[in-house]
Design a protein around this nucleic acid. Structure first.
Length: 602
RNA sequence: GGUUCCGUAGCUCAGCUGGAUAGAGCAACUGCCUUCUAAGCAGUAGGUCGCGCGUUCGAAUCGCGCCGGAAUCACCA
């Protein structure tokens, strides 16, 4: 909090003179003053009153008086029910604001915590290549990307990495179905996006597979047996084995279909505005994983069962036994994650590796980190699972088999169309060229979607109702974007006026009468660095989203109450223009951390 | 059953290491566009913070016990 440190020190120094007792720094509790009271920062005096041997009110008054007569920091105070509300000299706020404005135009990055050691790696997205992205993936991608932006803004060197699960039984299922029922379809021949085409055959596989299971059940098998015995599954497993052997025909099919999927993903990523510095492929890391397992066997950290499968026993750590290699020698998810982690450390010597993965895999990562540690990799302590909760529909969990998934591409398209429709309804299209308009709709639709998702704390599950479109009013992305456009519009006007063209030369610290709404805005503007730091610390874009909203809200209140451009009051206008300009810059900065763009007009 | 997470207004969500009368938005109702963009501003209404006990000057926040929901505990990923 602003001025907290100075005040803390001051009160600590004054306390013994006032009450003949020392006070511990930890007892000095400051909080922002509540809106309904006068003041900037509040000291809670209950615990101090005990120390002082006076009533809370008297204690507060004595401290307040002493602070005011000290002179440099505090301009006034009031005590209400044990709370000492302190007002800070306005010019101190304005001095900081002036410095901020100056430094923001000269050099960009603010905080520069020299991170010792390597970069921070953030893994996110991690798609399977057998089906298109859905709403759950959107949350993952937006979260991952945003966390990277926030960490960067907080002074970290960030490397965005992706791991593509490009091999395994799930892909074989799509491949097999395409072979059997695809009659040579391609993205070109069907006009379908590649990932959707491949996804179609994944569904196709499941359809036929379930039919087989049903038939087997009808002929007397139990459900469980039928599921294991179905010929299609055996075929898929056979295909996986052939893949691991490098069968040329299978490899070719695999490469072709994966290529289709990548082309499809690329489109979705681009539209979402996310990207990666480095992409890993499971097909290139699983062998390293296997060799790590071999080593573990040699060191007797792992053991082999009679059927040849390899395990680790984690029961002493309160977990279970975990398989690391199947009896036929093929690798499992855990195997390749071991390989990927080691490969990354060798490549980057990261100071931290963050996995953005859903909370359904909490257990998996607990085990992964523990295994690495047991295998002797000290850097296992640098790994962190950023676990986020599911996106639910009103009907409950999304299930691809029941067709209740919300497709990513469709959702984005809907949002953009909604933005276009709304803009037309509001009659705001007149000034726009069609290319410009299209760009704007994209920005607004995605802004609404991204904000909707990122404003929720990652740990909380969130609800998405496809029947109710995401709002464009109130606490939303477009509200923030609108606020930015509003400010830019005022600034454009000012820049076209000779009297205000050079408003940036004015010194904001010389402004004498700070209105309440202005001060509120300044206060919010000045806390951004702190918010960024906390958001980085907690890996929480939600904090940034809420901040951006708070700032935009505060601007709109100010905008409603006070004229900005007023030739009669040139000094005031210049101050306000600078305040607005900086506000727009900070809105831009915070939305940028959320991956949301802001328009010049809308 | 074991482990972990969640439960705040009709709905979607904030609420920092315990602090003042628990905050926004949506939906409902009411005002405000001849002044820089009304995707805005202001107001009304809406709460036993799942329930109970405990710690404390003080609990939505911390502890314990219930109730309700979710995830996970696979030779799936």
């Amino acid at each position: 909090m602003l001025f907290e440190l100075q005040l803390k020190k001051l009160v600590q120094d004054l306390f013994p003179q006032l009450f003949n007792k020392e006070v511990d720094e930890k007892q000095l509790l400051f909080q922002p003053t509540r809106k309904e009271f006068e003041g900037d920062i509040t000291l809670v005096v209950f615990n101090l009153a005990k120390q002082a041997g006076l009533s809370p009110d008297d204690t507060g008054k004595k401290i307040g008086d002493a602070l005011v007569s000290e002179g440099t920091l505090v301009s006034g105070f009031n005590v209400i029910k044990g709370f000492l509300n302190i007002s800070i000299h306005n010019n101190l706020f304005l001095n900081i604001l002036r410095d901020k404005i100056n430094s923001s135009t000269t050099h960009q990055s603010i905080s520069n915590q020299s991170t010792s050691g390597g970069p921070v790696l953030v893994e996110y997205s991690s798609p399977n290549t057998n089906k298109p992205l859905h709403l759950g993936h959107i949350r993952n991608n937006l979260l991952g990307y945003s966390v990277c932006q926030i960490l960067q803004a907080d002074g970290n060197n960030v490397v965005k990495v992706n791991i593509v699960n490009d091999r395994g039984i799930h892909i074989c299922k799509s491949m097999l179905a395409w072979q059997k029922y695809g009659s040579g379809e391609t993205p070109e021949s069907t006009g379908l996006k590649g990932d959707h085409l491949v996804g179609k055959y994944y569904v196709e596989f499941d359809k036929h597979y379930r039919e087989e299971v049903k038939q087997l059940e009808a002929s007397g098998w139990s459900r469980e047996e039928a599921e294991k015995k179905a010929p299609l599954l055996a075929e898929a497993q056979n295909m996986l084995r052939k893949w691991e052997e490098g069968d040329p025909e299978i490899m070719k099919l695999w490469e072709t279909m994966n290529k289709w999927v990548y082309a499809g993903f690329e489109v979705t990523y681009k539209r979402l505005g996310v990207d990666f510095d480095k992409i890993y492929y499971e097909s290139q890391t699983y062998l390293l994983g296997k060799s790590i397992v071999e080593e573990g066997l040699k060191k007797d950290i792992l053991y082999k069962k009679n059927d040849g499968s390899v395990w680790i026993d984690l029961r002493a750590d309160g977990l279970d036994e975990k398989v690391l290699l199947r009896s036929d020698g093929t690798s499992v998810y855990m195997t390749q994650d071991l390989g990927t982690a080691v490969m990354r450390y060798e490549e980057y010597q990261f100071s931290k590796l963050i996995y953005v993965v859903g909370n359904e895999q909490d257990y998996h990562f607990k085990v992964l980190f523990l295994i690495l540690k047991k295998l002797g990799y000290e850097w296992a302590d640098l790994l962190y699972h950023l676990s986020y909760n599911m996106v639910d529909l009103p009907s409950g969990k999304m299930k691809s088999r029941e067709g209740t998934v919300v497709d990513a591409d469709e959702l984005i398209e809907d949002m953009v169309n909604e933005a276009a429709k709304l803009t037309r309804e509001l009659g705001k299209l007149d000034d726009f060229e069609s290319a410009e308009a299209k760009h704007l709709f994209e920005m607004l639709g995605l802004g609404a979607l991204k904000y909707f998702i990122l404003k929720v704390d990652p740990e909380k599950r969130m609800l998405f109702n496809p029947d109710e479109s995401i709002d464009f009013n109130g606490n939303t992305g477009p509200f923030i974007q609108y606020t930015h456009a509003r400010i830019r519009s005022v600034l454009r006007k000012a820049e076209s006026m000779p009297a205000f063209k050079t408003y940036k030369d004015a010194d904001v610290s010389q402004y004498s009468k700070l209105e309440a709404k202005e001060k509120e805005m300044v206060r919010i503007l000045l806390k951004l660095d702190g918010v960024i730091h906390e958001a980085a610390d907690r890996f929480s874009p939600a904090l940034i989203a809420n901040y951006a909203y708070e700032l935009a809200k505060s601007f709109n209140q100010f905008y409603h109450d006070h004229p900005i451009i007023d030739p009669e009051h040139s000094e005031t206008s210049k101050f306000r223009l600078n305040l607005c300009s900086y506000c727009a810059a900070m809105i831009h900065k915070s939305t940028q951390m959320l991956g949301i763009g802001v328009p010049e007009k809308m």
